[in-house]
Write a protein that binds this DNA or RNA. Structure first.
Length: 291
DNA sequence: AGGCAGGCTTTTA
DNA sequence: TAAAAGCCTGCC
């Protein structure tokens, strides 16, 4: 099917934003998007008439699956253009530029268990290493399926599948010391899932008490600290005010906001702006144009 | 009590 | 050798 999106939507920017680790770039400019046990092939179609900024994409799923799942996954009911417009160039030139340059990013509504395990695995490592470990874990415990082109992929393993893996197999996924955390989360997740899902958000709202309660719930998992908990809040529970502070964001805050970051100005979308900043700063440092 | 140093796996530069 | 989307434990 073909869909048209008038709001910000850039597959490449989303794929490289560091919120998802299992997307695969295709040779036609599209992506194979893996989430939980699903797979979607999506590719942007060439722009039509002049002056039309809307983006059309071809998807390999039936219409009902788009409406029941992928529409929500890509967060298509949110208006990211409007979120970007809240940042004034004269008040916050750094964030303004980050939003302009990383326009197209959206905050995906990702699978809860996959996101929890993925960000446990992410701690203290680079993105390629994270992707490799997750790929190995899916091969070790996921289910092999075929996509619409007949090419196989592995689902993200169920909690039970990970919980039953021997230590040696987990270690072979290059998890390092994190293997214990990965196993513990798999064992504990089923009993905690319902409590956790109560913190899942339909739309952005300022609710500091609920944000804190969600963090507390998440940090109850062995191996989950404040940073990983914020990532899960943002990328799976869709709590858009969650603000993960990692080594990169720490550098940004120290370098660009020596007098403190005005997070109250950006509520309830702090997490969205964090993502623009994070992507922009990484982009700059990757291309050696830092400072 | 709450803050801090040190340790932890593995890979890459 | 240091750093990489950190966290746990033990010490003070």
């Amino acid at each position: 099917m073909v869909i048209t999106i008038s709001d910000d939507f850039d597959l490449k920017k989303i794929a490289e934003s560091g919120q998802c680790f299992r997307w695969e770039a295709l040779s036609d400019g599209g992506y194979r998007v893996l989430s939980g046990n699903r797979c979607l092939r999506i590719r942007p179609l060439p722009a039509g008439g002049t002056g039309n900024t809307a983006q059309t994409c071809e998807l390999d799923c039936p219409e009902d699956e788009f409406h029941s799942f992928w529409q929500n996954y890509f967060d298509l009911s949110e208006n990211y253009r409007q979120i970007r417009a809240r940042v004034r160039r004269e008040e916050d030139p750094f964030l303004y530029t980050a939003c302009e340059r990383e326009k197209g990013i959206r905050i995906l509504r990702q699978d809860l268990f996959e996101t929890l395990e993925s960000f446990i695995i992410s701690q203290n490592r680079s993105i390629p290493m994270i992707q490799n470990s997750i790929r190995l874990l899916c091969r070790a415990a996921g289910e092999e399926k075929k996509d619409s082109a007949g090419i196989s992929y592995f689902t993200f393993p169920s909690p039970e599948a990970i919980a039953s893996l021997p230590e040696s197999v987990l270690r072979d996924c290059r998890l390092g010391y994190r293997w214990k955390y990965v196993r513990a989360a798999a064992i504990d997740f089923p009993a905690r899932e319902d409590r956790l899902r109560r913190f899942c958000c339909d739309q952005a709202s300022e609710d500091n008490a609920a944000d804190a309660a969600a963090l507390e719930e998440l940090t109850g998992f062995f191996g989950v600290g404040v940073k990983v908990a914020n990532c899960v809040s943002l990328f799976a529970l869709h709590r858009l005010n969650a603000f993960p502070v990692d080594t990169w964001v720490r550098k940004i805050l120290a370098g660009q906001y020596p007098k403190g970051y005005p997070s109250e100005n950006y509520s309830p979308y702090n997490g969205v702006y964090q993502q623009y900043m994070f992507a922009w700063y990484r982009q700059k440092s990757a291309s050696g144009k830092l400072r």
